[in-house]
Design a protein around this nucleic acid. Structure first.
Lengths: 343, 343
DNA sequence: AATGCTTCCCAAAGCGCTTTGGATTTGTTT
DNA sequence: AAACAAATCCAAAGCGCTTTGGGAAGCATT
């Protein structure tokens, strides 16, 4: 069923039917009603492609997912973020188009999306420090919104980010207040902006308490269970091992916990752990009493909100870049306790 | 830059330029070369929408991701599957469009995708037992391919599945051969087809060895760490606890391991664990020596292959439904050992 | 020179929608 | 009753591409 057939069926012109369906005022209420009923009856939906061609709008948002060629990693938060964004798109009649691309060909993809007019805007995932994509997208004139921020980028741009610095500073403060002085950081890859900020927050806290920064207690890598395990296992074997951990992800934290237990120690008693918790649907941090003390911020909510922000900037072009910063909720769980007395 | 401008620039008609770019033979080699160079120079890409309108093909595949309203769960394998499928699409000039939808409105979405001619075909995710989507898509005449199978569906359809029955039967056999007689199953939701098949494989093995099926040792739920933990913790407190576990997911297995350790037991010695391993990028099962004994099958590869199968059936319509079944690799890790002697 | 083949190219229609610029009808005002 | 405004509706152009149905030029064949 297309517009032509529908309008023939109704004995109206395509113009009138189109207008009736799109809420233009030049149509009488009675006609509009009749048209709407018929559209429902015949399950008529306008062709996105034709509509896009005619209006010049794609009614679609692109998500470019970089998959690092070295690690073949798909960021685990991605699924939940997309789910959140998808809700927003569905509500607004937009489609989400996804491009998986190795980080070599990223620029290529953005150019192609632009010149094919395939999308009205894009969401930038996984921003890195000094990320070149901001400048590129600005040049291309393709509206975009970043999930995260870009350190060293002085161009204005629209983004939504968690307050990573604040969260990790606060978490480190909390551990300090419990008496911990040897606090380790199991971070994500620090060329990623979020990981960089978290380290800075951690360091800021240490500095403010006069604790020297010990690089032996810091690691930066992919956030997998194995890597968390290996990093913590080694550190706990040090002559002067950490008594507390700060993890960038619940998955890393699971590895850290395993390392703690493999050393015959007890989490929450011998070694404390705080992790960032993205509230992934398949990795809940316990029920009412969280297992891990955590800095919590739902990545799904982030997806929903950032998509809203992007649609907004697309609709009302000419407004200044939006900047949304979400504060983490600090939840106390069973994984932290007073630092053990030295014997 | 559009076709009109490009052809004006070259002093050729749109027809010729279009044909040159699309590999039709009616163009001299010299002209084709000239056109291709110009296209590259001006970074010309045909508008997907216009192309789609003209050809009647969308050059896009839809992925409908059901998000259960009760659990708000996004299947964790989804990210990796999509990454695999995306590789295939990129290679073939297709786009992937994603719809997130709560399971109430699923049918609606398929109808809409069809009537808007937004996609050339869809991938069906998370098939359930007796899933009504097969019949629906057949009715709609929308080409599709299923990631998994549908028990109780006698319509022919294209799918790719892991041999779940075989894998779990084999895993149970393996545990039996190690002397285990109390073998527990921590399964996914058994209205999902894959989980149903796994249970049947497990039961088939038990039956063939004359072991009675004990429902106290079986549970079926979302595959999260917490749920795995809780199920195993309870079962291990039984008067006659299991000595071995079969898990539907590495994430559940992490929970089971924690439960084992919280009971003061050692995995691989006191209690054995075998899990299915989807080879998710952020949840590797160890390096050279796997932590968990596992039935392994990469969901990313599955995504890549299923997308290929779907594109194939779309190109060569009129060929019978394709059925691909992948056998799991059985890898022995550190989590299994001989059943402990009864005292 | 007329005929028939290729080879190479083009004008124009059409895909399904929106939107411009009227046309027609109806209602209101004097 | 004439004149004008408002309310409804419509024909046709246009979005950027593909594809049909030729047409012109070049060459070899009669």
């Amino acid at each position: 069923m297309n517009l032509k057939e529908l309008s023939k069926n109704l004995g109206l012109s395509q113009t009138t039917v189109s207008r009736a369906l799109n809420g233009y005022p030049e149509v009488s209420a009675a006609t509009r009603h009749r048209v709407e009923r018929a559209a429902k009856e015949f399950n008529y939906h306008p062709s996105t492609r034709a509509k896009g061609l005619a209006t010049g709008r794609a009614l679609a948002i692109g998500h470019v997912i970089p998959v690092s060629t070295q690690h073949e990693m798909v960021n685990p938060v991605f699924g939940d973020f997309i789910a959140g964004a998808g809700e927003t798109y569905a509500r607004n009649g937009f489609e989400m188009i996804l491009s998986i691309v190795d980080d070599q060909n990223e620029e290529q993809i953005y150019r192609s999306l632009k010149s094919r007019r395939a999308v009205d805007g894009v969401i930038v995932h996984g921003p890195r420090i000094d990320d070149s994509r901001i400048a590129l997208l600005n040049d291309l004139g393709l509206p975009f919104a970043v999930h995260g921020q870009v350190t060293h980028c002085d161009l204005p741009y629209t983004f939504l980010d968690v307050n990573n610095h604040e969260a990790f500073e606060q978490a480190t403060d909390y551990l300090f207040d419990l008496g911990h002085r040897r606090i380790a950081l199991v971070n994500g890859l620090e060329n990623m902006d979020f990981a960089h900020r978290r380290r800075r927050g951690y360091e800021a806290s240490l500095r403010s308490h006069g604790i020297p920064i010990d690089t032996a207690l810091m690691c930066s890598n992919e956030m997998t269970e194995i890597i968390g395990y290996e990093a913590a296992y080694k550190q706990l074997a040090l002559p002067n091992p950490p008594t507390a951990y700060l993890c960038a992800s619940l998955i890393s934290a699971l590895g850290v916990r395993r390392a703690i237990e493999d050393h015959g120690l007890t989490m929450g008693k011998d070694v404390s752990v705080i992790t960032h918790d993205d509230v992934l649907s398949y990795l809940q941090n316990g029920g009412d009493t969280p297992i891990f003390t955590a800095t919590r911020s739902s990545v799904r909510t982030a997806g929903r909100r950032l998509a809203e922000v992007l649609l907004n900037t697309i609709q009302h072009t000419m407004q200044p870049p939006q900047r949304v910063i979400l504060e983490c909720e600090f939840v106390v769980g069973q994984s932290t306790g007073p630092a053990p007395r030295k014997d």
